[in-house]
Computed example of a mutant assay.
Amino acid sequence: MEKLDSLDLSHNRLSGKIPVSLTKIYTLGVLDLSNNKLSGKIPTSTQLQSFNASAYDGNDGLCGNPLPMCIEDSLRPSTTNPVENMNENDVSMFSFMQEVGISMGFWGVIGSFILKKSWRIAFFNLFDVAGDWFYVSIAVFVSKCRRS
């Protein structure tokens, strides 16, 4: 079965969990397990989770990617967004620290321009050169379009 390309087991009254051995069929291009009585979490594999949710339709007990999360997964704290796992004081402190970091970066740049005249001149010269390049590029493009 390791070279199986298509597997359609829909409308067969199959029950229980999806066998983990299905994750070992790497050549599987089409899968349809819809309209059975399957339950449990879809085995974690990029192969089985890459199929459309329609491949698992009609199995009210199934959960996991690409279907909605399983209950036990939704009870587990999220690790993707650290702000979600914080209480109100932690969130305000996190926000405050972000604001401090942003303001330090802002004043670090602005302060260096205020204190170092050579940096300020170089910075604005860069904008002059970029503006000139942009103007010339647009002028060349417009003239080419007019010739066509």
Score class of each variant (00 low, 15 high):
Val109Arg: 02
Asn12Thr: 03
Thr46His: 13
Thr23Glu: 09
Ile138Tyr: 06
Gly131Tyr: 07
Thr80Pro: 00
Asn85His: 04
Gly29Phe: 02
Ile18Cys: 03
Ser6Gln: 11
Gly40Ser: 10
Leu9Gln: 10
Ser137Arg: 09
Leu4Met: 12
Pro77Ala: 11
Ser39Lys: 10
Met86Glu: 05
Val100Lys: 01
Ile110Lys: 00
Pro43Arg: 07
Ile71Ser: 12
Leu31Met: 04
Leu115Met: 02
Ser54Asp: 14
Gly101Leu: 03
Asp32Lys: 11
Val136Gly: 01
Leu62Met: 04
Leu126Asn: 03
Met97Arg: 09
Ser74Ile: 10
Ser118Glu: 12
Leu7Trp: 03
Gly61Asp: 11
Ser39Ala: 13
Asp57Ala: 15
Glu88Arg: 11
Ser112Arg: 08
Val83Lys: 12
Thr46Lys: 15
Glu72Tyr: 12
Ser137Leu: 08
Leu48Pro: 01
Gln49Tyr: 02
Asp90Asn: 12
Val136Asn: 05
Leu67Ala: 04
Val129Asp: 05
Pro77Val: 07
Ser34Tyr: 05
Tyr26Ile: 08
Ser50Thr: 10
Thr27Met: 13
Phe123Leu: 06
Ser10Gln: 13
Gly61Asn: 11
Ala55Trp: 01
Ser45Tyr: 05
Asp32Ser: 13
Pro68Gln: 14
Asp128Cys: 06
Leu48Gly: 03
Gly105Val: 00
Pro77Phe: 02
Gly29Leu: 13
Phe96Pro: 00
Phe51Met: 04
Pro68Ser: 12
Leu67Ser: 04
Asp90Arg: 11
His11Phe: 14
Asn85Phe: 01
Arg120Trp: 03
Asn87Pro: 07
Phe141His: 02
Phe141Gln: 01
Gly131Ile: 09
Ser10Phe: 07
Phe94Gly: 06
Gly64Tyr: 03
Leu48Glu: 04
Phe113Ser: 02
Phe124Gly: 01
Ala139Val: 05
Asn65Lys: 13
Arg76Glu: 12
Glu99Thr: 09
Glu84Lys: 12
Pro68Met: 06
Ala55Met: 05
Met69Glu: 15
